[in-house]
Design a protein around this nucleic acid. Sequence first.
DNA 1: TTGTACGCGTTATCAA
DNA 2: TTGATAACGCGTACAA
Lengths: 335, 335
Amino acid sequence: MEYTIHDVARIAKVGIGTVSRVLNNNPNVKPATREKVLAVIAELHYKPNPIARSMISRRTNSIGVMIPFFTRPFHIEILRNVEAALHPTNMQIVLYNIETNAQRDAYFLDLPMRRRVDGLLVISLPVEDAVAQDIKNAGIPTVLLDTYNPLLTSLVVNNVEGAYQAVKCLIKKGHRHIGFINGLTNESNFKFNQANDRLIGFHRALGEAGLLFDPEMFLTSEWSREAGRATALQLLSHGRRPTAIFAASDIQAVGVLEAARSLNIRIPEELSLIGFDGIELSELLDFSTIQQPIEEMGFLSIQKLIAHIDRPETQPELIRLNTTLVERHTTAFSL
Amino acid sequence: MEYTIHDVARIAKVGIGTVSRVLNNNPNVKPATREKVLAVIAELHYKPNPIARSMISRRTNSIGVMIPFFTRPFHIEILRNVEAALHPTNMQIVLYNIETNAQRDAYFLDLPMRRRVDGLLVISLPVEDAVAQDIKNAGIPTVLLDTYNPLLTSLVVNNVEGAYQAVKCLIKKGHRHIGFINGLTNESNFKFNQANDRLIGFHRALGEAGLLFDPEMFLTSEWSREAGRATALQLLSHGRRPTAIFAASDIQAVGVLEAARSLNIRIPEELSLIGFDGIELSELLDFSTIQQPIEEMGFLSIQKLIAHIDRPETQPELIRLNTTLVERHTTAFSL
DNA sequence: TTGTACGCGTTATCAA
DNA sequence: TTGATAACGCGTACAA
């Protein structure tokens, strides 16, 4: 038994226009009639139908969040903060978990969320130029978080600088033989260009210290614990094993921790380690990392997205946030 | 430049009825005209407006997922599997993160998602009888996961049996002095009755072995790592400290691990530990736990929910799944 | 087999 | 200050 605005109007003996005005706090309603209408609304427990409202307003009060959800805890923490940022609003999150290339294309190309969401927040997923152009043409307010395309507002962390911070820290502590486990640029066919930037930072720190890049000390793995461990095992079994490892993500760093333990290599005495992301697990396992401003990333991206929704003429911009080196108990001086 | 069904009809020189029939695969369309219409649809990249469709069909193709999202990794893993189960469908997830009592009531009492979602999946959050009755009266297809109410289809794990398994295992290994860190029944004003059941299982195993319940060995803490650690510290500082601890959740068990490490208590030599949930972290940190069938919980709950959506006359049922003891390297014989 | 007209529940316009 | 009426874009009887 769902009531409509007509029921309210009929029972309150007013026109539906008046009810609508009451609902939308239009001041052009005589206080007395407003009271009368509100009384009926309360009595019937009437709630306006949001779908019908969307028909007219062309707003759904929801945003689509595209996220490669389960690959990394980092994404969960981002999502948490996105959610928190959205709370004060009355907007809802429609979750698009993206696990395969096909899924991503299905969402991006068909843009099925068109008119089902007011805006789109894309987390970490690379957006090709053609797709970005499509999104722009379709006029879908969009913000990219932890991924970049010049056509769309993008919020990224300075990955080059972050990696540089990490490696420089290790060098400062006397390490000369530093392993680098980077993330795959291609995973599930996604191109994560974060990895490229982190490699650049690695190179820069090395170059600045006059250290040579040793190809044998550079490996890549999936952005996962298991892959991180396997790769670390490889690195640590090397004839001349590294005295320090920089991992491109915390979850890979966890794998390094495991590998070291299984090889009875003590951390930090025999091996220093720095991860990347600053997920809660890094604190829990007490390892050093390059902290991303996760909370700020969530809030700022929502703020920008809402700006795009409210003012479609808003121009795309690139926002670059900084990382922070957080030293915990996995970084020691090289012997 | 969004096209409507009228544009398609006009350009294809047919009526909108025909276009609609083509869109909905109604067989009563002459192949030739179908082709013609499809050609125009393809040319215009026309997509029917889902909002307008919802007006008529009264389906939104989305389900609301209410989840106390960030308190425990367990919920994340549940959500992951719920998402996976929903993928084959063309349904979307609207995420309702619930962190406070006020939020929960806002969602439950106003039922603002009414008509914005086809169904509701409530994870872990207790549902009071009055609320359950409201939901039933409102005719909102609903499934409760990891929480129970007789009025609604509920999918729960046998918490009593799970706790019993854990404690019995410890007793079998010779432990006579077993600490129990239970979760709070009330947290953020939520009443988590999972804790009650686990306490019952604890009692049962003790009683069966003829062991006395020692109130000093029974503490409760928030369902968090920090709280688990603080509580474990208290337990382990006791004059006659336990030789084994059963924690009501894995995340609390992690806290126990930390506490033991900080007190230089070796695990499992000096202290055995069993957690509850079977989250990935338990595998990562290699501690024993009572494994919940997380994947099955996700898939089965969605299956049941869809049944309720498709056939509103479906009767509520109680589904009870079993837990499994997974022994890793934190359970040893008592000396 | 096809087209027209109506209704879904709102908001917005316009005349009263 | 108010009420009737026209959209919004679609699905669906019903008539042709």
